[in-house]
């Protein structure tokens, strides 16, 4: 018998803190498309692309989101080149754009055209 516990399939969101409204919108975007999220609070000054790439590596769905300390958002997939995220959204882009970033990650998982 394996001692490993099954990991719930989820998009991993690595969040550097300080931008709870951005985090809320990103999670709402995922939820709208019915894809579960697992939020992991991180420390340090990594940029959103690096955070998202690491998050994708940690996700059983190979899809991750990074929200860095400036509030910028990136969506990434583990199979893509490290520096080529699916999408990035600036911190000041507004709540609709942040929500769309969550939706984009969800659509990568469900293999739907990205908006």
């Amino acid at each position: 018998m394996s001692t490993e516990r099954p990991v719930a399939p989820a998009v991993v969101v690595r969040y550097a803190g300080g931008h709870s409204e951005v985090l809320r919108q990103v999670c709402a975007g995922l939820e709208e498309e019915g894809v579960p999220a697992r939020v992991e609070q991180v420390t340090g000054d990594q940029g959103c692309v690096a955070l998202a790439y690491a998050a994708a590596g940690a996700s059983p769905l190979e899809t991750g989101i990074g929200i860095d300390a400036t509030g910028a958002v990136a969506v990434h997939h583990a199979a893509l080149p490290r520096t080529a995220p699916v999408r990035t959204v600036r911190a000041d882009a507004g709540s609709a754009e942040h929500r769309l970033a969550g939706g984009t990650a969800a659509r990568v998982v469900t293999i739907q055209p990205l908006r």
């Binding site: 080149p81 080529a84 699916v86 984009t104 659509r107 739907q112 055209p113 990205l114």
Partner: peptide, 10 residues
Amino acid sequence: EPLPPHVYAR
């Protein structure tokens, strides 16, 4: 080379 996001799932 990865296919660009604008053609994903299309």
